[in-house]
Amino acid sequence: MSPSDTTPEPLPPQVPPAAVRVLRLSQYRSYAHLDLELDIRPVAFFGENGAGKTNLIEAVSFLSPGRGMRSSGADAIARRSEVGTAPQWAVYAEIDSFSGRHAIGVGAQGSARRETRIDGDPAPQTALARLVPLIALTPHHDRLFAGPRADRLKFFDRLVYAADPAHGEAASAYEKIRVRRQRLLDEGHPDPTWIRALETDMAGHGVAMAAARLDALSRLQAEIDLRPDGHFPAADLGLDGAVEADLADGLSAAEAEDRFAQALEAGRVRDAASGRTLTRGPHRTDLIARHRIKQQAAADCSTGEQKALLLTLALAQARVLRGQIGLVPLLLLDEACAHLDTKRREGLAEDILATGSQAWLTGVEKSLFDAFDTQAQFFEVKDGAAHRV
């Protein structure tokens, strides 16, 4: 299924970037303490493998909801001086957002539970998404199109979430209800009224997720189509999902909810027998991508081509966010220049500067970022510190 044709709105001429102006770390992975003051330009970290570059942009990823870009628990994040001590770590940042300057604190103090504060007050993680839209790419994504379906869906949902925080809330509610429904089925002979109520709620959240994905895909494809001859290859995108297909075929939200709820009811015996939700819902959707010029499935492209396609999606979504919500997102690009030739590295710098994003990049050598010239901030990472150069 392909998105409908959409004429994208032109980008506003002046859009404030989301930017980290202060970053402080305490007992965080390889850093006992770190204190950086920054301006709104892209930030490039370079240094030897294992120096701690990725740790820095992972810390920034905690300014958005979730478990960070490595999905690590508190035990892995905390820097320990003594074996057996309780995990304690903290990330503090002052950020520019559409609503002004905010102070964000994230960390754990003696427990695995992560705590979040905004401007000094306790806050739910979901509140972060409404302050700091964020798009992240890591080396783990390099073979995303050839890997498990769930990884592609998670990546795409993060793109959707950056523009529409309500999508993350619907997805969280959907997953909680899905787990509760499966638990009832596993226990056997669930109360018909109770499980029907769960399936009705699950269908409502599921259709909301599918609708948000279709809207995001349409905007993203339209933005890609505006620049078919850019630095990175144009991609043709689609979503392979039952609920998304129903909506794309013209069913109303209410009709799609009814159809999905009926499918869940019909699939109870099968789902109970398998121990998992095999009924096709938004949790089983797949992102489909093709390299337009080569007319080749992304999964069959080389590692370098797959990485270039991912950068196509990330940069296009950054432009969509700028036009849609009037705020340039943070871009976290870990080892983004790996597998890119000189021409594409230059193109990456040009595209990042064109979006106005405060991109955070890592690489083993400063020369990888030469195309930024003086339009970026450079730090050499070594010995548990980041030195401005």
Rank of each mutant, 00 (worst) to 15 (best):
Y161H: 15
A266G: 12
A245Y: 13
D229K: 08
P3V: 00
T277Q: 11
A136W: 07
G66P: 13
Q358E: 08
G281R: 02
A248L: 12
Q262G: 05
L36H: 11
R24H: 14
T279E: 10
R322Y: 13
V91S: 01
A376H: 13
Q221M: 04
H189C: 07
D164M: 12
R80Y: 10
R344L: 03
D157M: 08
E199D: 14
T303L: 06
L34Y: 15
V328I: 11
T116R: 06
R388A: 13
F378A: 05
Y28Q: 07
S71N: 11
V328Q: 03
D215V: 07
V179Y: 10
E335T: 04
R345P: 03
V43E: 07
Q88H: 14
L278M: 13
S64A: 15
Y92A: 02
L217Y: 05
L361F: 06
F46S: 03
Q375I: 07
A93D: 09
M202P: 03
L63F: 06
L327G: 01
R80C: 00
A86G: 07
A146E: 03
D300P: 05
R101W: 11
H283T: 03
P329C: 07
F46E: 02
A354I: 07
V269Q: 13
E365R: 11
D383Y: 01
G50K: 00
C301K: 00
K294G: 02
A234Y: 02
E346C: 08
D39T: 14
V91Q: 04
R24Y: 14
I288S: 06
N49V: 02
R388G: 04
Q377R: 12
A359N: 07
V207S: 02
A371S: 09
L239T: 04
V83W: 15
V106T: 06
I104A: 01
D258L: 14
Q296G: 09
Q27T: 05
P190V: 01
L153D: 08
S72V: 05
R183I: 08
A314H: 00
L159E: 10
K366T: 09
G281P: 13
G107K: 01
T54R: 01
G120M: 06
A19I: 12
L278Q: 11
R67Q: 00
E169N: 03
L144C: 12
